[in-house]
Design a binder for these strands. Structure first.
Length: 214
DNA sequence: CTCCCGATAT
DNA sequence: ATATCAGGAG
C-alpha cells in the first residue's frame, strides 16, 4: 500500500519534530562510544538486542585489546567470543565481526564503505546497522529503524507497518530529509526516558496530545 | 518463521 | 518469572 501524506498530516509531523527539537539534543551524536568508523561498525554489530550501556562497557576493553581492523580479522573466534560474551548472541557476533573485518580488508582496503549495498554485504551488517554508519559517519540522510523507532513511529501514527524496511520507506515520506538522522537519535532518547516499551510515562510526555496512543 | 543469548528492570 | 534491549542470518 502506497502511503500518501496530506497537508494536515505534515503540519502534525512538524509539530512533533519541533517538540522533539525542543526537548532533546539536535546533535548527530549517537550513544555508542567510538573513535573511528570501524569502531562504530563493530559497536553497532554488538548492539543487537543489547543495551548501548552494555556495549560501551564491552567496547571500552575491546578496543584497548584490538587496536586495528586487522587485529579483529586475525582474532581467535573463541577468544573474541569471551571478550564480547556479555552482549549476548556472542557466537554469531564474534563470527560476524571476524568475517566483517576480513572483508573490510580484502575488499575495501580496511575502510568502512559508504553505500547501503556495500555495507550490507558485510557479515553481521543489516539495514539498520548500515544506516547508522551512513548517518553518523558519512552524514548521508538515512533512517534507522530500531526497536524504539519502530514502536514509537507506530504510536505516533507515522506508519502501520511491522517490517522495518517498510517502516523506513514510510518514514522517508513522512519526515523531512533534514530530520532523518536526528529523528532516530531523538526517538531513542524518548524511548529510553518516557515512551518506554513496558510502562510508558504518558502523563509526563510532551507528545501526549499528538500521540495516536497504543 | 526460527534461532541466536546475556544483563537488567519490572 | 518475564519482557526488553540501537538486529541479522538461514
Amino acid at each position: 500500500m502506497v502511503k500518501r501524506v496530506t497537508k494536515t498530516e505534515r503540519e502534525r509531523v512538524q509539530k512533533i519534530l519541533d517538540l522533539l527539537d525542543e526537548h532533546y539534543t539536535r546533535e548527530y551524536k549517537c550513544y555508542l562510544n567510538y573513535e573511528t568508523p570501524w569502531q562504530l561498525l563493530i559497536a553497532v554489530i554488538l548492539s543487537a538486542q543489547c543495551t548501548d550501556a552494555r556495549v560501551n562497557i564491552v567496547t571500552k576493553d575491546l578496543f584497548q585489546k584490538y587496536h586495528t581492523v586487522e587485529a579483529f580479522a586475525n582474532a581467535e573466534q573463541k577468544e573474541l567470543e569471551n571478550d564480547i560474551h556479555s552482549t549476548g548472541f556472542y557466537k554469531n557476533k564474534a563470527k560476524n565481526i571476524i568475517l566483517c573485518a576480513k572483508r573490510l580488508i580484502e575488499v575495501y582496503g580496511g575502510e568502512v564503505p559508504r553505500t547501503l549495498e556495500e555495507l550490507t554485504s558485510l557479515a553481521g551488517v543489516g539495514r539498520k546497522t548500515a544506516n547508522v554508519i551512513r548517518g553518523n559517519i558519512y552524514n548521508e540522510p538515512s533512517i534507522v529503524v530500531d526497536t524504539h523507532v519502530k514502536r514509537i513511529s507506530r504510536k505516533l501514527g507515522f506508519t502501520k507497518e511491522e517490517d522495518p524496511e517498510k517502516i523506513e520507506y514510510d518514514l522517508m515520506k513522512v519526515l523531512p530529509k533534514e530530520h532523518w538522522i536526528l529523528y532516530n537519535i531523538q526517538i531513542i532518547t524518548h524511548g529510553r526516558g518516557l515512551c518506554t516499551a513496558r510502562n510508558p510515562k504518558c502523563e509526563e510526555c510532551f507528545l501526549r496530545e499528538l500521540c495516536k496512543e497504543k
